[in-house]
Design a binder for these strands. Structure first.
Lengths: 302, 302
DNA sequence: CCGACCCCCAAGCAATACTTATGGCATGGA
DNA sequence: TCCATGCCATAAGTATTGCTTGGGGGTCGG
């Protein structure tokens, strides 16, 4: 059963004649007549009786018309649904972000997005970059905010598209009572802390710290490990260690007992947004990407 | 929104990939791929993400799929409804018949029809031929059983198709005590009743009687008029008149006080079934026509 | 009786839809 | 590592489909 013809038949029934249906559809009368003929052949029975002033539906025609009406209604509903998604009056974006971004940049972007498109349902899930890749691959999130330290392989391959949205500088974090704690806005060389005890961040962050220290000529004495930046600062504030924390983490939460200084020779970690290669054609995803880029542009340097 | 493509999309969603949908549809992969592309262009957003092992529906795709499922269900229901009508497991035929046929031939045909197609809803409405034409024209009945006396213009013109189903001989009806009442199976000449009082039937029947008598060389003394064949016979049985009644009317009801003889030189009235010219393509109508013809073949001579 | 308005049919042309042929990409096993 | 497999896309050619044009027949109302 050809559904397109069903809708043409509906127009015939609505207007009462083949000729008027043709006018209403912008076609010639034989075009509509042929469609009706095909439909009747498929149906195996006449759908209308040809009368001098138009057509009159047969029983089969009346039965078919009921279904055609229902189908037309559904088609209109489908069109309306799609329209709402395209114009962002409806829809969902599911974000994944690593903790320090999820506490700073991402909420700001989500708020921007909510202002731009109040109908959009934006959802956030916290995940470290490796897990975020899995979520993306499994289709559990649409967009993932990740990072890579300098020298690291940037995340995302093949399937996934990677959009750089800026850099996040790493800061040396010391107890505020530490002799090297000041002046806070001038860079400090890693070597000045070669003999300190260190606290490492997540696995990759700890590896990056170790690598940076080796490049500076020493092996750090890493005593503690946590990817919780509040915990890290608590350890530091109590004089138990020093650390290297990204600016975003410090923006998210700042222990009053720590001092922060730029580090010389340590390149910022790079921030990326990942999504499926074609997903940026999806309006909701595209708008989320824009919001993240716009937010990052005002927050983190490149 | 192209509904046919919607159903193709549904197949993609069902099978999980474009290639498998193509196999399932008996097409090549690019054919389906192009349909999907067109659908996405119309939709204004991707409906699936192309993944290495197939496709994954986007939010818009999932929304569209729900509607596509509903539409497919409706299409199946429509097909099933049509099938039932074509195979006469369902459907309606509305008959009109003049009284004496409606009491004899038509009920027999209806009963035959009911045996052949138990699902069919057969309805009868009594109507004299002129009114039956109106009912047909108004679409209030599908089939009309009518008659025309010899020499009369047969009913039905243009719009309507006429199917002769036999002849209905006219009988002279006398009081059983009448001297000409016997022998009952030999024809009697009209002229033998030239000086009787007559009872006429319906308007056209009375006109026909007058004409037949004139052809026989006399003007009948028509005292009474009714199209009710029971009433007619009651008048005759009591000796108040003689009459000319069709065999069908006598089959329908027979007053024991009347005698019946064939009439010489009076041709039977012709029985016709009328329907809209194209309506015999409608299964229910066709089956009703067949049943009427089959019944008439065993009941009335041609 | 004519004009208006239905409808159908046949033939021609243009748009659509499907096929064939080819290439890229990701995954999994030798 | 490389090859085989299975997925998808693109491009070009062809075959079908679908619409138009130009006929003709019928019914109805002025």
């Amino acid at each position: 059963m050809d559904v397109q013809r069903l809708l043409i038949f509906r127009e015939i029934a609505r207007t009462g004649s083949i000729a008027s249906a043709a006018r209403s559809l912008g076609w010639t009368q034989p075009a509509v007549s042929q469609h009706l003929r095909h439909l009747e052949r498929q149906a195996g029975t006449p759908l209308v009786l040809r009368r001098p002033r138009g057509v009159q539906l047969t029983e089969a025609g009346r039965a078919l018309l009921r279904h055609a009406d229902a189908i037309a209604t559904r088609v209109e509903a489908a069109t309306a649904d799609l329209d709402a998604l395209v114009q962002l009056r409806a829809g969902t974006v599911r974000l994944a972000a690593f903790p320090s971004a999820g506490a700073t940049l991402v909420p700001a972007a989500m708020s921007l997005l909510a202002r731009r498109h109040p109908g959009l349902d934006v959802r956030l899930r916290e995940a470290e970059p490796p897990q975020a890749l899995g979520l993306l691959a499994a289709g559990d999130v649409d967009v993932a905010v990740t990072f890579a330290h300098a020298g690291e392989e940037p995340p995302g391959t093949g399937e996934l598209a990677r959009v750089p949205i800026g850099g996040d500088p790493l800061r040396l974090v010391l107890p505020s009572s530490h002799p090297s704690a000041h002046p806070s806005d001038t860079p400090l060389d890693l070597r000045a802390l070669a003999h300190e005890k260190w606290v490492g961040g997540c696995e990759r962050c700890t590896a990056h710290l170790r690598q940076a220290c080796e490049a500076a000529g020493f092996a750090p004495d890493i005593r503690h490990g946590t990817d919780d930046y509040v915990l890290t600062q608590a350890l530091i504030a109590r004089g138990l260690a020093v650390g290297l924390l990204p600016q975003l983490a410090l923006d998210a939460a700042r222990d009053p007992g720590v001092a922060v200084r730029p580090a010389t020779g340590i390149r910022p970690r790079a921030l990326y947004v990942l999504h499926h290669r074609e997903a940026d054609q999806i309006p909701a995803v595209r708008s989320a990407l824009r919001a993240l880029q716009d937010t990052a542009a005002g927050r983190v340097p490149f």
